[in-house]
Design a binder for these strands. Structure first.
Length: 471
RNA sequence: GCCCCCAUCGUCUAGCCUGGCCUAGGACGCCGGCCUUUCACGCCGGAAACGCGGGUUCGAAUCCCGCUGGGGGUGCCA
């Protein structure tokens, strides 16, 4: 049975690149009827926090990803220690008493000479006697894996074919830190093996870690899983997507009011597509069509514009009214609107969903419909100060009966045009300025169908105030 | 520097494996037009790419080699 895992380290919010890795793991697992493990890689106690762990879990759920098993590496240190001791006992690893300063010096020297740095192996051949003495003296030590020199470790990557890296490129590497905590390369192998992970789907940034891990698989006698290294996501400047590119965490887009399904859809089809001209797919369709062998090998540049477009497509074409309402609600609450009766808001959303791509855009767009008191923009006020505008508003109030709707507005507008000879554009812009306080936004006729007549009257009256006060 | 990976419009990609159907298709963005009370939405149209050089072949975006370019890694981070 297929078993994959997503293994974030809780040192920040869920990054878009990691979210995409999670999505591909999820799609692969579900497509193959396998299972997905979520594993929190918090071996680095310095940088890992519970808050980030929680935020990652929340954001994964928000994206619509679910998993079958959950682990936290910080709770498995006993297991790792046992395996480290075994390697030590078997002579496959050794204690290294070099200090970080020693290593730093070695690194600098290598750099100066222009040769690639690799651990000198100073502690590699210490006698058991020397090791014991140093340990007893309380000299802190790390544990290093004994790596065979000059060996080409080659492995098969499902996307790239055979990849070969020479052990001389990295040398004996640390598997247990001097504080006793195990390192990433070590624990990841133990966990993947023990948890029965069959396919390791991860970012390309781990490609060069793979030979190290293979050496650990061998030392521990575990059998190898299949490796699939996904290309990374790049920023507009073609460097790895990072904070300096602006919004790069799922949280950013969630807070900005992007539709989660759209982010899922966008990320899933960034670097992969099912050879169709369509680009909007439900999660179920993506699961059904997913084929990991079709993932592009080249890194992909993240394009916020396209994501925004896709979010808009979900808002205006994909989401049903209830879902739209559910997604919009927190943003509406947050904006402090007062016209928030559920049926009314739903009606508003249905009529206006064509005009925004995200829910923060929505709050801007819907101000005149959801707020009782509106602010008047400078441009709107300027327009209202004209004599024509005064005439439009006065006549409109006269002609407006009890109710108001799109038919009525159009009828009245036409009458004013005929009777007073005012250009339609002026009529409509005046109404818009009066009703919304802006010169652009949702169609005035649509607003007439939605906004209660008393508010219409209220705002028209108020508009008159602006007119007269300017005289 | 060294190691590894990659290469179709500005960007995401289809086509490549199994050469001819490719005068290279779609999407975002951009430009123009239509619709329209404005913006938007929608519709129609347009500009825009096989990195370069060698092979192989009757024929190459598709296969091979080199170059160039891009990316990732080079931690007691993951």
């Amino acid at each position: 049975m297929v078993c994959v895992r997503f293994a974030p380290s809780p040192t920040g919010y869920l990054h878009l690149g990691n979210a995409r890795v999670a999505i591909f793991n999820y799609l692969f697992a579900r497509h193959n009827g396998g299972k997905l493990i979520l594993r929190i890689e918090d071996t680095d106690r310095e940088r890992s926090t519970k808050e980030f762990e929680e935020s990652i879990i929340e954001d994964l759920q928000w994206l619509g990803i679910d998993w079958d098993e959950f682990y936290r590496q910080s709770e498995r240190f006993d297991i790792y220690r046992e395996y480290a001791e075994r390697l030590l006992r078997e002579g496959k690893a050794y204690e290294c008493f070099c200090t970080p300063e020693d290593l730093e010096r070695e690194r600098e020297e290598a750099e100066k000479k222009g040769i690639p740095y690799r651990y000198s192996g100073r502690c590699r051949d210490l006698s058991n006697e020397e090791r014991r003495r140093l340990r007893e003296r309380g000299v802190p030590y790390t544990v290093r894996l004994r790596v065979p020199p000059n060996r080409d470790v080659s492995f098969k990557d499902r996307l790239r074919g055979f990849v070969s890296i020479n052990t001389d490129d990295f040398g004996d590497f640390i598997i247990v830190r001097s504080d006793g905590s195990p390192t990433y390369n070590f624990v990841v192998v133990i966990d993947d093996a023990l948890m029965g992970v069959t396919h390791i789907i991860r970012g390309e940034d781990h490609l060069s870690n793979t030979p190290k891990q293979i050496l650990i698989y061998e030392a521990l006698g575990f059998s190898l899983p299949e490796f699939i290294h996904l290309p990374v996501i790049l920023g507009e400047d073609r460097s790895k997507l990072s904070k300096r590119h602006g919004a790069v965490s799922v949280r950013n887009y969630r807070e900005e009011g992007y539709v989660p399904e759209a982010l899922f859809n966008y990320l899933a089809t960034l670097g992969w597509n099912p050879s169709e001209e369509r680009e909007i797919f439900t999660k179920e369709e993506l699961i059904r069509m997913f084929n990991i062998d079709d993932i592009s090998k080249a890194p992909a540049v993240f394009n916020r514009e396209k994501l925004k477009w896709m979010s808009g497509i979900y808002i205006r074409e994909v989401l049903d009214t209830d879902t739209l309402y559910r997604y919009a609600l927190p943003f509406i609450r947050n904006a402090g609107f007062d016209l928030t009766d559920e049926d009314y808001v739903k009606k508003v959303l249905e009529k206006t969903r064509d005009s925004f791509d995200t829910f923060t855009e929505m709050t801007e767009r819907l101000k005149p419909l959801l707020k009782r008191e509106i602010d008047m923009s400078e441009e709107a006020l300027n327009l209202l100060r004209t004599e024509e505008s005064r005439m439009v508003i006065e006549t409109f109030i006269e002609k407006m009966k009890e109710g108001i709707n799109s038919q009525e507005v159009k009828r009245i507008a036409k009458e004013i045009q005929k009777e007073k000879g005012i250009k339609p554009k002026i009529i409509w812009q005046t109404l818009r300025a009066c009703i919304t306080g802006e010169l652009e936004g949702v169609g005035v006729d649509i607003i007439a169908d939605l906004l209660p007549p008393e508010i219409w009257k209220e705002r028209l009256q108020k508009g008159l105030l602006y007119v007269s006060s300017s005289k």
